[in-house]
Design a protein around this nucleic acid. Structure first.
Length: 423
DNA sequence: TCTGGGGTCCTAGGACCC
DNA sequence: TCTGGGGTCCTAGGACCC
């Protein structure tokens, strides 16, 4: 018998995190915005009921926000990341192993628990998460990740399941799959959904019954594997060791458009600095850096330009000052005057563990610079992100992204922890 | 005026090699 | 008139995810 896999998923995760520390947000419509306060990326049930969609630009929602008193928040990733750790801790005793899939979703390997009533088991886990974090969750159970995902979606959509759907039951599985739109299946995006619907495949059940050869022809090995997973034949396992990262990026939209090179370079310097920090925290070095920037692609009637250059890093490095220099070389080559740039970024590729990196002939010692980087990381860790900066980052940072409605760092900054006063 | 950020995997096609 | 066959490696771009 195949070991059961569960997926636990936090409901309206960012909104639920915000509500944990601000009870005035409970029971009213709430949305949380993307970086730069651009679009709605998390909505409370009340906000969804008002027709607000994932990714709706907030500037088109102004009337609705005013009319319904919708509460609007900037995203606070320090809070969401910290709450995630608490959710995982609450689940710890309920599974043999975990795969953290995203900030609000975790796959659980339930082998060893087969003998139990897994719906009751899942409910006990949900109760603990709720008690420790206040966050509501749903759980799906199946014999493959795709079926666990499907069960989770069903549990979320249909109140009948009361938060937990166990698709190992033949009757339940068939009932769900015959009603589940093919485009909502995990791994079926817009393009594939359109092709499938043209073939008359509209529900998950029909996708499951599609001949394997046809699946491969329509959607390559990816769709073929997906069909196998829907049949309960796992082609993907719960991965308990973190895979080695292949690339890394730091990109941002600007709060106000940028038209001159020094200002652009200021932003890129900061992103390269942050990218170096990320590399060092993972013990990696990079072999290539790409600097890019572009104009506002949502306004095709305005002059458009997208510049991008990739620079090789040898020796491979995680030194922020080297990354800044490389970003400058790339950006200089790609730069064109006369445009209003609204977004830029730095991407790193060819990542290798620092101690395995290839040495170059005549390589100079890096101990001094390593110590400098360590010192910068420590200062910024202790005194805040921008305590130690390079001159190239500039001090005005007029391009910095908007985040005007961010909640405090309730759990990660001692100066902002909530206080309770006795009367 | 105002539209996110950060990933993965797969395929096709070109460069290059013997 | 004839003008190989098969590998590998790399990159760009598409599709998808949250």
């Amino acid at each position: 018998m195949t070991a059961p896999i569960a997926l636990i998923d936090c409901n309206n995760y960012y909104v639920s995190c915000e509500r944990a520390f601000d009870s005035s947000l409970v029971g009213v419509p709430v949305i949380v915005l993307s970086n730069n306060d651009g679009c709605a990326i998390a909505r409370s049930a009340e906000a969804k009921a008002l027709g607000i969609k994932m990714g709706d630009p907030v500037h088109l929602l102004r009337d609705k926000i005013r009319a319904h008193g919708i509460r609007v928040l900037s995203s606070n990733y320090a809070l969401y990341g910290d709450m995630q750790r608490r959710v995982i801790a609450a689940c710890d005793a309920f599974a043999r192993d975990f795969e953290i899939y995203s900030i609000d979703e975790t796959f659980l390997d339930l082998s060893g628990f087969e003998g139990q009533d897994l719906v009751a088991h899942a409910n006990a886990m949900r109760a603990r998460v709720r008690k420790w974090t206040t966050i509501p969750t749903c759980v799906g159970i199946g014999t493959s990740k795709t079926l666990a995902k499907l069960g989770n979606a069903a549990a979320k959509k249909n109140p009948m399941f009361d938060g937990v759907a166990d698709l190992r039951d033949d009757g339940v599985r068939t009932w769900v799959m015959d009603r589940f739109p093919v485009g909502d299946v995990w791994g079926v995006g817009r393009a594939t959904a359109r092709k499938l619907e043209a073939l008359g495949i509209e529900h998950a059940g029909a996708l499951r019954d599609m001949p394997m050869k046809q699946a491969r022809a329509v959607g390559t090995v990816v769709l073929e594997r997906l069909v196998a997973e829907l049949r309960g034949v796992p082609s993907d396992v719960v991965e308990t060791i973190e895979p080695r990262r292949k690339g890394m990026a730091v990109t941002r939209s600007f709060g106000t458009p940028v038209t001159d090179f020094p200002t652009l370079f200021g932003a890129l310097s900061q992103y390269a600095m942050r990218a170096g920090e990320k590399l060092r925290s993972h013990g990696l070095v990079a072999g290539r850096l790409t600097a890019f920037f572009h104009t506002n692609q949502h306004k095709p009637d305005r002059p458009q330009y997208a510049g991008s250059r990739t620079v090789s890093l040898h020796p491979m490095t995680s030194d922020s000052l080297e990354l800044i220099a490389a970003a400058k070389r790339g950006a200089e080559r790609a730069w064109r005057d006369g445009y209003a740039y609204t977004k830029a970024g730095v991407m790193l590729d060819d990542l290798v563990a620092a101690d395995l990196r290839p040495r170059t002939l005549f390589e100079a010692g890096t101990e001094k610079r390593d110590r400098l980087m360590n010192a910068i990381d420590e200062i910024n860790g202790r005194f805040g992100k921008f305590a130690a900066v390079t001159a190239s980052q500039g001090f005005k940072r007029e391009w910095k992204m908007r985040s005007e409605m961010r909640s405090p760092s309730w759990t990660t900054d001692l100066n902002e922890v909530p206080t309770v006063r006795a009367r």
